[in-house]
Design a protein around this nucleic acid. Structure first.
Lengths: 138, 138
DNA sequence: GAGGGGTGGTTACTAAAAGAAACTAAATGA
DNA sequence: TCATTTAGTTTCTTTTAGTAACCACCCCTC
């Protein structure tokens, strides 16, 4: 056993910008960002404008309802623009705004990280599940 | 009105690593990453080891249950290490693993982005809510 | 020696969200 | 005539998230 850790004084490091605070506006944005679908949608739009059903087909498993909700939220937050074309049937195109592009630049690395580190994650999971004291080892 | 957009050919750009695919292992990780609490916990651990109740106090609004679940998941995925000390009462310390640190390096910018771009987001929300055709303008 | 507080959780209950499937409506193609 | 396309909405069911209470353990004060 190691010796007990230092208890306090590190909380001060998180005082400048309180994403940790419930009332902080940044927390409201995080609520939208902390959503796997939103992350995927943002990344899907990275290469240019995409139509509703194209996104739906590409992001395997997303429902129409959720996609509709996510897009509406992202549009409201100014990250995505919605453009309707007078075709028949109507064509709706979603694209990243300038703001959305600066965000997506930070979302991409996160998604790539998951892809690049799958072996380590898999190994960690196996090790964890194989541990005698793990909940998985019943 | 603009002219209709190009329909296909852009789907191929997303073919190399399919985070978009339901079965893809990276998608499973994304399911954990796409969680506001996980993002906050990872960021909270950035400055060094922290104890359970310290995280709980700092991350305003998180419940014990959720924190417990998130930490367990992050530990299983090999991003966080859990160390119990033989103090009384028992002290449990959570810290980022090397893997977790490479991830947190990408999570931080995302959180900072939210903090830095709040004015733009607020403005976009006001503009959206004030639009005559917006759902908020009933 | 009876409370009050701190440690790190788990368990039950409930409120909110996600997911599946059907439906809208107008027009095109078979 | 019927299926398909467009972009969604509506309804219903299942899953998840969150709230609150409780557990055991020990220290300290009163």
């Amino acid at each position: 056993m190691q010796k007990p850790p230092g208890t306090a004084a590190d909380a001060a490091l998180c005082a400048k910008f309180n994403v940790y605070d419930q009332g902080c506006p940044a927390r409201l944005v995080l609520d939208h960002l902390g959503d796997k679908w939103a992350l995927l949608v943002l990344d899907r739009l990275r290469h240019g404008p995409v139509r509703f059903n194209a996104i739906r087909r590409d992001i395997n498993g997303i429902s129409q309802k959720v996609l509709s909700q996510v897009l509406k939220r992202l549009e409201r937050d100014g990250m995505v623009s919605r453009t309707a074309f007078a075709t028949v049937p109507v064509t709706v195109e979603y694209a990243l705004t300038d703001l959305g592009q600066t965000l997506t630049a930070r979302v991409g690395p996160l998604l790539h990280w998951a892809e690049d580190n799958m072996p380590q994650i898999r190994a960690a999971q196996s090790a964890y599940d194989g541990r005698t004291d793990s909940p998985a080892a019943a």
